[in-house]
Structure formats: C-alpha cells, structure tokens
Simulated scan of single mutants.
Amino acid sequence: MSCPVISQAAIAPLSRSATFLLLEVSDTLDSINTIRSTLSGISGLAKNIAIRDPGSSFSCTVGIGSDAWDVLTELPRPAELRPFPVISGNVHTAVSTPGADLLFHIRADRRDLCFEFERQLMVRLGDSVSVVDETVGFRYFDARDLLGFVDGTANPVGPDVSASVLVEECDEGSSTSIGGSYCVVQKYVHDLNGWNALSAEEQESIIGRTKFDNVELDDAAAGAQKSHKTLNTIEDDVGVEQAILRDNMPFGTPGSKEFGTYFISYSRQLWVTEKMLQRMFVGDPPGKHDRILDFSTPLTGATFFVPSAKVLDDLG
C-alpha cells in the first residue's frame, strides 16, 4: 500500500551540491528541548531557504541515530534501528563513528543555499550539539565518482523508488515508522595515485562495469573474486533482488591531496545495506573482500532512521 503520511526528502532528485552534517547531542534538558524545537521547525526553515530559488531543488533530510532516538522522540523505536556495526575483514575494517546522533543531508543545485541553511540551523541549535563530521560534496561530471566511474547506476527508478526506500507498513505495531527510511553513511578517502596506476581493464574488473560507457560486465565464475557490482547485489531468502537508493557524492581538495566519496544510502530495510557492507569487507566467499577497498578507506560509519515529516513536526 502507499504511505499515508508525508515523507521527508529521502527520494529527492540528485543535486549539484550537498552538505553531510553529523552532530552529537548534548544530553542536558535544555539541549534536548532546543533540539526538539529545532527539528520541529526544519520544514519551515527549509521553505525559507528554498523560496530564494524555487528551481534549485533545495531539500534537507534529517536522520536520528540509535542512541538519540529514545532521548529525542519518546516514540517506539523502528524495528531495525541500531548503531552502525564495526565490520572487520581479514584486511579492511568498516569503522563505527561514536556520537553520530543526528544527520542533516542538505541538498541543492546551489552551494550557497546549502551554506545558508546550515548557518541558520547551527545558530538555532547553538551549544546543544557538537559537530562530529561536516563534508561538502559536489556532483562530478555525469554523476561520476573521483575513481572515474558512474555512481548510482543500480538505483531504483519510477515506482520502485518508494517501494525500496520507504517503510510502508506498521513497524512492529508502530505507525510512527510509516513513511520513514533507514539511512547509512560512510566517508571514504581514495588513494588516487594507486588507483590511477591500474590499467582501465583492471579498474573495470574491480568495479564490474566499463569505465567509458558504463556497461555492466558479466559476473565472475563461482568461487572467483567478485566485483564491487556483484558484491552489492543482494537477494532475499526467496531470490528477489533488493535495492537501496544511493545519493553518493565526491568531495575533496586537490591542494591537500584529499579525494573521496561520501556514501549515503536510503532503504526500507536496514539489513540490505548491512549485508552489502558485510560482503564488501568480509568477502563472499569470506576472504575475498571487495578490491575497491584496497584504494578506498572508510573514515566514518553511522546509521540513522529518517522519520516522516509529521514525526519531526510533532517533536516540538
């Protein structure tokens, strides 16, 4: 069935610019009241920014972390909401970021609108929060990452978007989860020198797609090293492929030689994204990790639930 409530902008169209802001909540009573009041006013603040350029596709999506959910909402917990797990493979580890209580995914086709929204947001929040991470992303050519490949090709389209992203049924008897979405973020930095030392054919075998025209390559033989594309293809117990919505963005500053990708996914079921990461870092079969991790290192990892717009509005 379709969601009977208004969702946040989890399924907003891809934008030219974005800010990914992770905040830690101060647990004093005054801070909690300030945060609740601010979150309940997010829709109004977003409208005030968006009206400055109605064609800019401005939006802000708010996610609440596992540790902060009970403190800020006093609502039943979404069934799958839990802290981001540390995933340790033989070679690489997906880290979990402490204190990542709130996510603000701020998007627009103009960088100045993202900046102004964040400025006004932080004035309202004041000392009730502290910044855990702040990353500014940009759209790179034809939706490519800094490794040179088109990113997000496997995203659902059309009616499959809502079906893949939004909770549509009561979550263990709680209607507060309807219209919400699970969100996972990771900030990766790339070893571009090492990556660019590979031939195009080697890069393509790691990704599972051609670099120039983004054509999907055949899967590896059973038991062989799987590509990034194959490891991120997830099926449920009856063989139905499960999708997530990615809105990844490159970030970086050539002067400081920092180059990276900010991974962000929205999904109706958290286990789908978690299984993707398990297959990447541990390998499938175990020991054959995703070779993209030899050139991409995660600096952060956090999980959130993005409640419906009504849940946010009612927090105040």
Rank of each mutant, 00 (worst) to 15 (best):
N155Q: 05
G287R: 10
Q242W: 02
Y262A: 04
H92Y: 14
A224Q: 09
V62P: 02
R144W: 00
L312W: 00
G260T: 12
R124F: 00
D213Q: 07
N48V: 06
R119D: 10
L81C: 02
N214V: 06
H228S: 04
L14D: 11
G194K: 07
E118W: 02
V157E: 02
T261F: 11
L103K: 10
P307R: 10
L245F: 08
S56L: 04
P76N: 11
L121S: 13
S174G: 12
R124H: 11
L29G: 00
A309G: 14
H92K: 12
L121K: 14
H190A: 08
F115W: 02
G148I: 09
V184C: 09
T93A: 06
L217A: 03
G99I: 13
S308Y: 05
V62T: 14
P285H: 05
M249T: 09
Q120K: 15
Y140E: 14
A302M: 06
D284N: 15
R246P: 12
L75P: 00
I51K: 10
R268L: 02
I64Y: 09
F141K: 08
G208L: 04
Q225S: 10
D67V: 11
S31C: 11
V95D: 07
A10S: 07
T210C: 07
R246W: 05
E172L: 03
G158Y: 01
A46S: 05
V306S: 06
S31D: 05
M249A: 09
S199M: 09
F84P: 01
